[in-house]
Design a protein around this nucleic acid. Structure first.
Ligand SMILES: NC(=O)c1ccc[n+]([C@@H]2O[C@H](COP(=O)([O-])OP(=O)(O)OC[C@H]3O[C@@H](n4cnc5c(N)ncnc54)[C@H](O)[C@@H]3O)[C@@H](O)[C@H]2O)c1
Ligand SMILES: NC(=O)c1ccc[n+]([C@@H]2O[C@H](COP(=O)([O-])OP(=O)(O)OC[C@H]3O[C@@H](n4cnc5c(N)ncnc54)[C@H](O)[C@@H]3O)[C@@H](O)[C@H]2O)c1
Lengths: 270, 270
DNA sequence: CCAACTTTGTGCACACGTTCACAAGCGGTA
DNA sequence: TACCGCTTGTGAACGTGTGCACAAAGTTGG
């Protein structure tokens, strides 16, 4: 019976103290980032994900030699509306110049700081099958501050074999290897039945972040952050939209004719 | 001007009628899906994604021979709170029995119907590199109603080679092959610079849903639905949480001692 | 130095999503 | 039949996120 509320009970909610941020901040540090640290707590999850996107776009702009961007330009490039972009940026501070825009370099620095990218985050992949191989071979992570430093599998044929330049270790070595290489993010790419066990091992080894590709709901302690990538769910959501659209069309409403704007792209720059 | 964010603009809003459900619901139902279709429109995006998860969990329960589930059981298994689960289910209709729970079979049927899974959705993968191979070889999709029926690449060495049992076609054949095999979902797994061009080709070929793995913001017409899977963003969001947590620890604030409850994992089953 | 113009940063209202809490409905039992 | 305990379904409160619209702040040109 009963104690079911567990989830919200122990986790999500700010338990008793609504204070959170407006406390006087009793001089935790004289060093830089004075108020910014406090702000970090208040950044909406959705905004964090977008900041990562802005960062990527900004990097591209920097390579093309752009010195400054306006919120409008950046917004268009990132596929969001400019008000939202400015609000997102405001969560991390005020680094723009009114009448001008933002300095690309400054914005990159600040976003990286807020996202914790000033530090390298060592990544371990567990389950070196189809997906694990793809991840291990992918060159895009190290460049963005996420070096893949450890690979694990149970298959004895795989252990010792290097994949993407890194030899596969046996999962029994998770504790030792993760400690040695200071792994901070674990990626689970095992079959679903093995996922929870692997997750438990990673957590025991001190890994605090998990990216899970197995279609399973993982149970973890409060101090561990899990994000899941579930391709089947993505496909099903797409399927839902097709179905909804089909229904709309079947109903034969006036919108069907799609007069409003031709099919160039969903975004209007003006 | 204006139509900038096709995504939200065209869809989400409940136009005029707040009626929705509080009508007396006369005549529960004899003919199917009369009102249900209307409801489909009102299902929050977030709920749709969760319905897909419930569906997976229910399938597992069905295989284990379960006949009925209570919202509480299902909620725990799906990792959500039971009120949310019931609300989500209520969007698709009332298929439970008070005092008892839901019939697993019925729930599966209804969710599949709402998600449009009664129809098969043919999938095409474009870009048969690391990731494309993994996707093509993955056996989990066909079983869930998403048969991968076409593969495309530009690399002449790949064209004609079968991957996961399906021969790779050249991207110039996208229009023909997609039409022949009635592809309804396109998966983009090409390098970022090629993504937009590939997307345009798919759209031109009549594909209405795109799942994009390339870290690029795709521009599409309003009638095309795009979902993106951006692993770099996932990792960066995790990084953000590590950083935030590190800050919290550094601040050594009083919240640490809170001790409302220890609880090993977020969920209490009793 | 001022006026005109540009762009940021944000208060505010609204939309969306989550959670609570309870009446309504059902099965079982006396 | 009448009662009782259990579980659903949902109105309503609440919290989060989005977008508008504008004052503040800067730049440019005269
Ligand atoms: N491949 C895809 O495109 C794809 C798509 C969606 C979801 N997924 C999910 O990702 C996961 C991996 O998929 P895959 O196609 O790479 O599977 P796979 O079978 O190719 O690889 C699984 C790997 O995990 C290893 N393994 C098994 N048990 C293990 C354990 N206890 N500890 C460590 N390693 C173990 C196996 O030896 C194997 O190398 C699955 O959960 C799958 O559902 C994969
Ligand atoms: N591999 C991963 O784990 C991973 C992780 C995150 C993101 N991604 C993204 O997924 C995409 C694919 O990654 P990958 O590792 O498989 O890359 P890859 O280089 O291994 O494969 C890319 C494939 O696309 C093909 N290609 C190139 N241009 C094409 C075009 N115009 N039309 C069709 N095909 C074309 C290439 O021939 C190649 O086979 C990239 O955008 C990458 O950023 C991959």
């Amino acid at each position: 019976m009963a104690a079911q509320r567990g989830q919200r009970n122990g986790v999500g909610d700010t338990p008793p103290a609504p204070t959170a941020a407006e406390i006087t901040t009793p001089i935790p540090r004289v060093a830089e980032v004075p108020a910014a640290r406090d702000r970090a707590r208040a950044i909406p999850e959705a905004a964090v994900a977008r900041l990562a996107v802005y960062l990527r776009v900004l990097s591209g702009m920097q390579e093309q030699g752009a010195g400054t961007v306006s919120s409008e330009e950046l917004a268009v490039a990132a596929g969001v509306n400019s008000a939202k972009l400015r609000k997102d940026l405001s969560y991390i501070g005020s680094y723009g110049t009114r009448g001008v825009g933002y300095e690309v370099v400054v914005l990159i620095e600040e976003i990286e700081r807020i996202l914790g990218l000033t530090r390298k985050h060592s990544v371990a992949v567990v389950g070196i099958g189809n997906l694990g191989h793809a991840l291990a071979n992918y060159g895009g992570f190290p460049g963005r501050g996420f070096p893949v430093t450890a690979l694990f599998d149970v298959d004895p044929d795989l252990v010792g074999v290097p994949v993407g330049g890194i030899p596969v270790d046996h999962i029994d070595d998770i504790p030792r290897v993760c400690a040695e290489r200071e792994v901070s993010i674990g990626v689970i790419a095992t079959p679903p039945p093995a996922a929870q066990a692997v997750c438990d091992r990673l957590v025991e080894a001190g890994v605090q972040c998990i990216l899970n590709f197995a279609p399973v709901v993982l149970q973890v302690p409060d101090h561990v952050e899990v994000r899941k990538v579930d391709l089947a769910v993505e496909l099903q959501v797409l399927s839902f939209h097709v179905a909804r659209r089909a229904d709309d069309a079947a109903q034969g409403d006036g919108v069907a004719g799609m007069g409003p704007d031709l099919q160039v792209n969903g975004m209007v720059v003006s």
